[in-house]
Design a binder for these strands. Structure first.
Lengths: 188, 188
DNA sequence: ACCTGAACACCGTTCAAGT
DNA sequence: ACCTGAACACCGTTCAAGT
């Protein structure tokens, strides 16, 4: 049995990926974990504290996953396929989406500390993508970063749109269009 | 002075574009319009009724705007620039986003009738984009529809990402990458 | 036709108090 | 250290009553 704090974070992440930060409720989290809502406040004094912990952990996990992908293959196209796979798996997991993608929509309702973590998540994605793209040619870092941001935005949008229209199949079709148009390097 | 129902819809739209469907509250809407929450229920018996009316109107307005763009110019690249401009203006309007983009994130919390309207909005966008793309060449409709969906998703994602990271400038940079990569036809 | 006050059953959140 | 009861300020909804 995990400790209460970890179980709260796990349930909270799954909830935020399906319903957003705004839908995070101490009462429901407590019910799912088997304690009272006031007990959740013992571990996370405010909702902001929970949000910051969630977003930071989410980014750390993402960074670890991305590092593993970059080490598993030197082929940029293959790394990018694995990258897209992360977003696809969120949809496969009961139509969930990237937690920070949802939070991006909720920016105006986020405490500043949470928003900062959401930005850091985006930065980590863009930085990693730029590193992968720099394997394809020796152009300036700024060129790869611009394209990296575009890929991150496009894949996020594919996930968002597919979530309410077409599901995983639509997501795959959209990403295939990205490859066909040249936005995402597809190799060969 | 507009009538109360119209003023409620205007405030609700602006709110939903900034905070989502979930943040729509009859009490706050009432306060903004200067009536009591029970009066809002006179015009929209339930929140679902309000959501459906909002999303339907949003789609109708979008369809009218898109039709005007398609008639104002025969040049696909110019039409696509105008299309992107719609999304940019949402960001310029106090960092708001497409209402149906926000609602796409909230799919799981939407009454089915509202979700259907959100899908209809996406369909209208994709259909219009496919019409514009079909002006560029005579390939099959299905080819243009696939690309249209990809462009809709990519522009939605650019708006979502820019909303919490870089604002309008980031949005423009991302869209420029879409054009440079060939995802969005840029003319010449 | 349009609006309202009051009530209902709920909600997330907080915090002083328990063990 | 960990948990809780009770209170607070909300919410959508209903309905009888006003104009």
């Amino acid at each position: 049995m995990q400790d209460t704090k970890e179980r709260i974070m796990a349930v909270a992440r799954a909830t935020a990926q399906a319903h957003g930060y705004g839908a995070l409720s101490f009462r429901e989290l407590a019910k799912a974990v088997g304690v009272r809502s006031a007990s959740v406040h013992y571990h996370f004094p405010t909702k902001e504290d929970l949000g910051v912990a969630l977003a930071r952990r989410y980014r750390e996990d993402a960074e670890a996953g991305l590092a593993a992908i970059a080490e598993a293959s030197t082929d940029p196209a293959q790394c990018l396929r694995a990258y897209v796979g992360i977003f696809r798996r969120a949809l496969e997991n009961d139509n969930r989406m990237c937690m920070c993608g949802f939070m991006a929509a909720e920016t105006d309702d986020l405490p500043e500390a949470v928003r900062a973590e959401v930005r850091a998540f985006a930065d980590a994605n863009v930085g990693w993508l730029a590193n992968i793209l720099s394997r394809t040619d020796g152009r300036d870092r700024s060129v790869h970063e611009a394209r990296a941001l575009a890929i991150y935005a496009a894949v996020s949008g594919a996930q968002l749109v597919a979530r309410c229209r077409g599901g995983v199949a639509a997501f795959e079709a959209i990403v295939e269009s990205y490859r066909a148009s040249g936005l995402i390097p597809a190799g060969q």
